[in-house]
């Protein structure tokens, strides 16, 4: 199958190094301590953070740090074919674990000992890059909840099809049988927090694809910072107006 036209355009009209349209919103769930939606093209996810709160299960309580928990669920209508079971299957369990570990490395857990932080991610539409969208939404939700973090986490994926590195694969490209490299970075600290790949790739090509994914993640981080600052600006000016 041809993923890149002779003119160099992908199936959805993008160039190989082009990311899909990003869109994020903060504070979307009324009762959550922090929440955010994140869209990458047609992939839409919503994340909610509840915490820090008292640990529900005493046996899991950690004396020196916060307990971070995460659950990933997919809506029955999120994929083209209707899914019967949105959570509890192996893929959901694995992604829950990945998100939890990535966010835990960002949170300054020693500042909130003996507490519990719950991160819930709900996928509304899955069109490739779900893992990355979930991590980005979770990071924004944690920031919205005021949970202290050493840095934001931004994530993006890249692949390799028709001999070209491609940034931010959609579902059709993802199903193309080529490799899929997902990376999660601490943009300001310039460190990699998550790295996953499936299929196979020679080392020199892997470095190119990884670099592309990291560039994508950093660009995503810039967008996320913009949205967070904009949100703070709105809250500050709302407060200012009330004063007069």
């Amino acid at each position: 199958m041809e993923y890149i036209s002779p003119e160099g355009l992908r199936l959805d009209g993008r160039r190989p190094m082009e990311m899909r349209q990003l869109h994020a919103e903060l504070g979307v769930i009324a009762k959550a301590d922090g929440s955010a939606t994140f869209e990458m093209g047609n992939t839409k996810v919503v994340a909610a953070v509840y915490g820090p709160r008292e640990v529900q299960n005493r046996s899991q309580q950690l004396q020196e740090q916060a307990l971070v928990r995460c659950e990933y669920s997919m809506a029955t209508f999120s994929t083209g074919e209707r899914r019967k079971r949105g959570k509890g299957d192996r893929r959901s369990t694995e992604i829950s674990l990945v998100i939890r570990q990535t966010m835990e490395s960002a949170i300054l857990t020693h500042l909130l000992p003996r507490s519990q932080i719950d991160i819930f991610v709900q996928v509304l539409q899955a069109d490739g890059g779900t893992r990355s969208a979930c991590i980005n939404a979770a990071a924004l939700a944690l920031a919205d909840a005021g949970i202290p973090m050493r840095d934001l986490v931004a994530s993006c994926a890249a692949g390799f099809l028709n001999n070209t590195p491609l940034l931010d694969l959609n579902y059709t490209e993802d199903s193309g049988g080529g490799p899929d490299v997902t990376v999660g970075v601490f943009p300001k600290l310039d460190k990699i927090s998550l790295l996953q790949m499936d299929s196979k790739l020679p080392i020199d090509l892997f470095e190119k694809v990884l670099e592309l994914a990291t560039e994508g993640a950093k660009a995503t981080a810039e967008y996320m910072r913009e949205r967070l600052s904009e949100n703070t600006r709105q809250l500050v000016s709302a407060r200012g107006l009330l004063r007069f």
């Binding site: 920031a143 050493r150 934001l152 703070t232 007069f244």
Partner: peptide, 17 residues
């Protein structure tokens, strides 16, 4: 004025130096 103070405010996000 408050508006000037607000305009000069510096917004920070986690990880910024």
């Amino acid at each position: 004025t408050k508006a000037m103070e607000d305009a000069a405010a510096i917004y920070r996000t986690p990880g910024e130096l």
